[in-house]
Computed example of a mutant assay.
Amino acid sequence: MLQRRGQIDTSRIVVPSRIRAHWGRPELTRSLRTGDLREARRRLALWEAHMAAFLQQVDRNLQSMTRDEVDALYRHYLTTKFDEIEAGFPSLSTKTRLTAPPSISRLSSFLVSVN
C-alpha cells in the first residue's frame, strides 16, 4: 500500500497473521525515497514483489526458522535487495528479473558471517 508521510511516499505491507504470530511484526514499512507519485508507484511495485518473495520464503520455512533468523533474513533483504533495485529501477514495461532472497540452506552461513 502506498502512503504519504510528509513529502515522501512510503510502502506499507501487512505481514500475514501466520507469520506475524511467529515473527511478531505486524507490518513492513519502507521509504520509497521519492515524492513523485509516478516514480513512487513504480518503486512500490518492485518493492512489493520482492517483499512477497521474502514472505513466501519465510512462510514455507516458518517451522524451521527462529525469530532471530527471520530478522536476519529480513535485514539482509532490506539492505541488499532494495538497494540493488533502487540503484537501477528498470522500467516495469521491460522484462525484469526479480531475484529471490537467499535460500534457507545458505541462511546458516549468512548468519555466521553476520555474527
Rank of each mutant, 00 (worst) to 15 (best):
F54T: 05
L2C: 01
Q57E: 10
V114G: 05
S31Y: 13
V14Q: 07
R33W: 02
A72P: 02
Y77A: 11
Q63W: 03
R25H: 12
L32D: 03
V14F: 03
D59C: 01
P16Y: 06
R4D: 04
S109D: 14
L46G: 13
S93H: 15
D68F: 08
S103A: 12
G88Y: 05
T96A: 06
L73R: 13
R43H: 09
D68Q: 06
E39R: 13
R42Q: 15
A53V: 05
W47Q: 02
R38K: 10
S93N: 15
V112K: 10
H22S: 12
M65R: 04
N61C: 04
E86F: 01
V58A: 05
A52P: 00
L55G: 03
A72Q: 13
R41Y: 08
L2I: 12
L73Q: 12
R30E: 07
R41N: 15
A87P: 05
I19V: 15
T34D: 03
V15A: 03
G88I: 10
Q63N: 06
V112R: 08
R4T: 04
S91T: 09
R60I: 13
G6I: 11
G35F: 12
S64R: 13
F89I: 15
L92W: 07
T96C: 11
G35Q: 10
Q7L: 07
A21M: 04
Y74K: 06
Y74H: 14
R38E: 08
V58Y: 01
T29G: 15
T10P: 00
S11E: 01
D36S: 12
R43N: 11
A52D: 12
L28A: 11
L28P: 08
R20T: 07
A100Q: 11
S17P: 01
K81I: 09
V15H: 02
R20G: 00
T99H: 14
R18M: 09
R67W: 08
L73W: 14
A40D: 14
R42W: 04
P102E: 03
R4A: 07
L98D: 02
R60P: 00
I13Y: 01
S17N: 02
E27D: 13
Q56S: 10
E27Y: 14
Q63G: 00
Q7P: 02
R97C: 06
W23F: 09
S93K: 15
I13N: 00
L107S: 11
D36C: 12
G35Y: 12
R12D: 05
D36G: 09
E48Q: 13
V15R: 01
D83T: 13
Q57M: 15
K95G: 03
L92R: 11
L44N: 05
V14P: 01
S31I: 13
L2F: 00
Q7F: 05
F54K: 03
I104H: 11
P90R: 14
T94C: 03
K95Q: 09
R5N: 06
T66M: 08
L55H: 10
E27R: 10
T96R: 08
L37N: 11
R5Y: 03
